[in-house]
Each structure stands twice: as structure tokens, then as C-alpha cells.
Design a protein around this nucleic acid. Structure first.
Lengths: 234, 234
DNA sequence: CTTCCAATTTTTGGATCCAAGATGCAATAT
DNA sequence: ATATTGCATCTTGGATCCAAAAATTGGAAG
């Protein structure tokens, strides 16, 4: 030890973990697509994005490559990246996929749900239910569910669920805002939460499954209406 | 139409769909990692790979980015890409994940299984069971299962299963070759196939689930033995 | 007025260049 | 002898440059 001074006062952050420019662009684009701020079918020009972030096209390309790997954009050689449009069948498939996975991770989570985690879930449910600003519903909905899934200690499940949700998030948000989805989600969240508090994983799983499939049905009905309208308007 | 000559003799291929250099490198590296030809923990040098493929580092970078997005390599800034090592818990999680998804897609598949598809599945099962060359077992195993899953018409499920399998393929191959996995897989494949022929989805699903979880148990036991040995040798 | 074609412009993807961080080693100080 | 520092080298990631492919535009011909 030899009286060496320690720099105990500075709080060190791991600089190597800091996000690279490509990370920043990737996250920004992913969020914009999920929120629907960039609409489907839109072409993403490398140069345009590069100017927006005041950087060269190289990190932009990396971000686009990653978005394509996640299925959020699709690229044709020399033709640029286009925000993916999902068919109704594809959307339905992703929701059924979620309806399979999310109850399962919830089961594992309930087994080890701490009072603190439960408390946080309650807070998110409340924040979601009372949020007046519709643009934040999507986020809060997601946080509520994730707070229930994280204690499961299943990072791979969680990551898979997350990428699945990213794919359909913009449709889900539309469903919340433009249909009766919000009122229904409030009720169903409360039901899931009650089952978790009671520690009844069977009911929590069933409700979660119904929550997802119900949203899917409502969304699909909504999309059939709006897409029929769009194509007749054109 | 106007009497324009048609070049009916040449079989046209869509050149825009041809794989880019980055695709070629990505596929090659993915396969090498899946097969275990590149061992875990190995560092992938951009320049080295670029020379191997006689190309600049740019498309190599793209391939590595995509591999990272798939979880096959992990990168630390300025430190290069390293082939991911999965902990036993992580491997177990991926197998349990597969054990949830694969029976489900099989159910959907059995509903619409055509005689031709069934015939192909039989052929792969037979090819797998009689293949003497152990280096090809992994591939044939995969083809057998995929031939049963494809008729489900669930591309998202299939893709998710595929990336999950990519993650653990090298471990699975080791299990087939280095334990009694092969004999057992032969028997279990036959059981699954029989249930599919009988159109009994309940049994087919149960057997698939047990097939995957059984392989996981055998693999984990094997890994505990070998990893304990490795760490004592070091 | 429409259709076709060629020239121009735009955009992408790969090559090369360069700055900055990581690594390893030798020199130096303690 | 050991720990620290400074230096040389290697590697990565972004910038810039360039070739090739696609989109667009502006006639010219029908």
C-alpha cells in the first residue's frame, strides 16, 4: 500500500462503454421508426442522415446495416434503405409470437418477483393509466411490461421480445391512440398486476396472452379499415 | 408487345439480388462460427479477413457489424471483434427458448403438412441417420427440423429459431459428436416423424420439446465436465 | 401529346487515407 | 527488483475519394 493516494473523489465512468456515433444514429433511427416519426416506405438517404448528425456517411451505413439486421429497414443494392412495411399477416405473426413468449417469461419472473420490483411495476402501471399525453403511452406501456419481465433473469428472452416489439411498435402505438385500446389496456394491466401481486402465475399468464392477442385483433381490424381507405383514396 | 425479340434461351437471374461482398463474408464467418471452425474467444482482425477475401476492410466491417447484431461476436471499441463465448446458463436459456418455439411452429406446420413435404422430411431423417461423416451431422440435423417447420408459413418464427440455433450450433454439434447424442437423436427424430405422419400434433410437440431439452441436459452435463477440465489444465 | 433514348445528376458501395486508441516493450525512477 | 512512464507499433473507426449503378431530366421522334 505504501501511503499511495487514491482518487476516491472522482466517480469514474467506463469511457470504452460510451456510445459510438454509429450507436447514436442507430438508436435515434430505431426510436424514430418505432414511434412512427419516420413513416413506413420512406427511403433513408445516407447523405441526408449524415448531414443531420454532422458526420460522414460511414457510421450512418453501420447504423443502417444494423437496422436491416433487426428487420426495421430493408435494403436493395444501390437503391438505399426503406423503412419496412409489414403486411397484416406479418403483424399478426409477430403478435402471436409475443403472445407465446411474454406469458412464459412472466412465469419465470413471478417466481422471483421482489417487493421492490412489484412496486416499480405498480408505478409504471399508474403512470401509464394517468398519462394524458398520448405520445408517451407507447413508452410507458413498454416500461410497465418490461418491469414485470426483467426479474425473470432471462436476457435472451427479453432481447427477443424487445426486437419483436420494435417491429410492431408503431402499429401498436397507433392502436392505443386511434382506437379504444387505451381504456382497455388500463383495465388489462390492472388485471395482470393483481395476478402478479397475488403470485398467481397461471392467471397472470392467461391475462397477458389475452392482452396481447386482444390488442392484435383490435389492431388488425383497425388496419383493415384504414388500409382499405388508403388504397381507395389513392 | 410489337414483335420485339425475346431472349427466351437465357435464364435470367436478378443481378440486384446477387450477394454483395459483405454478404459473402458474413455468410462465411457465420458458418465458420456455427461449425466451430473459428473457436470462441478468437479475435477477428479486419485486415486479416480482408486479405483472405482479397477486398478492403469496409465490407468486412459490415459483416462484423451484422455478426455482432446477431450476437455471434462481441465488440469493444478499438479492440476488435471476438467470437462470443456463452456461459452454461446462457446456453441453457437458448435451448429452453427453442423448446418453447419449435413445438409451437410444428403445430402450425402439421396442420398443413403436404405429402411432398413429409416425404422430404423423411429423406432428411434418413440422410441424417445414415451419414457416416460426423462433420455433416449438424447440417443434416438442421435440415430435418427445418423441413418440418417450413410448411407452417411462419417466416418470423422460423427466422427467430434460426438465429437462436446459430448461437448454440457449435455446442450442439459438439454434443452430437462427442457424446451419445447421435444415437439418441436418430431415435427421437424417428419418433417425431412418426407423430407427424400420424398427424398427431400433441405427441409431435411433446417429443420435440423433450428432444430439445434432452439435448440441452446432455450438452450441459458435457460442458460441465469439459470446462472443469479445461480450467484445471490451465 | 406521348414514348423512347441519351445525357446528367444523384446515390450507393468499396478503396484509401488519416487520426485516435490499444498494446507491448524498453527505459527510467524508486 | 519492481513499478511507472514514455515510445513504437498495431488496429480500429471515421473522412475522403472514386467507380459503378440507379434515378432523373430534357429533348427528339413518332
Amino acid at each position: 500500500m505504501r501511503g499511495r493516494r487514491q482518487l476516491v473523489k472522482v466517480k469514474a465512468t467506463d469511457i470504452a462503454q460510451m456510445p459510438s456515433p454509429a450507436d447514436v444514429i442507430f438508436d435515434a433511427l430505431r426510436e424514430a421508426i418505432a414511434k412512427g416519426d419516420i413513416s413506413e416506405g420512406q427511403v433513408l438517404r445516407q447523405d441526408h442522415i449524415a448531414r443531420m448528425f454532422n458526420i460522414s456517411r460511414i457510421p450512418v451505413r453501420e447504423a443502417l446495416t444494423r437496422l436491416e439486421e433487426q428487420g426495421l429497414v430493408s435494403t436493395q443494392r444501390y437503391r438505399g434503405a426503406v423503412v419496412t412495411t409489414l403486411s397484416i399477416a406479418e403483424i399478426r405473426e409477430v403478435f402471436e409470437f409475443r403472445a407465446l413468449l411474454e406469458p412464459e417469461i412472466l412465469r419465470h419472473s413471478i417466481e422471483r418477483l421482489s417487493p421492490e420490483a412489484l412496486e416499480r411495476a405498480k408505478e409504471f402501471a399508474h403512470a401509464f393509466a394517468t398519462e394524458p399525453e398520448s405520445s408517451r403511452w407507447g413508452d410507458l406501456n413498454r416500461r410497465f411490461h418490461y418491469s414485470l419481465y426483467e426479474p425473470a433473469g432471462r436476457p435472451y428472452y427479453l432481447q427477443t421480445i424487445s426486437t419483436a416489439l420494435d417491429r410492431v411498435d408503431r402499429y401498436l402505438r397507433a392502436q392505443l391512440v386511434l382506437t379504444d385500446g387505451m381504456a382497455r389496456a388500463r383495465r388489462e394491466h390492472q388485471g395482470i398486476l393483481d395476478a402478479c401481486i397475488a403470485g398467481d402465475s397461471e392467471i397472470a399468464m392467461r391475462l397477458t396472452r389475452e392482452h396481447i392477442l386482444g390488442a392484435a385483433d383490435s389492431l388488425v381490424a383497425f388496419l383493415i379499415r384504414t388500409r382499405a381507405q388508403e388504397s381507395s383514396e389513392r
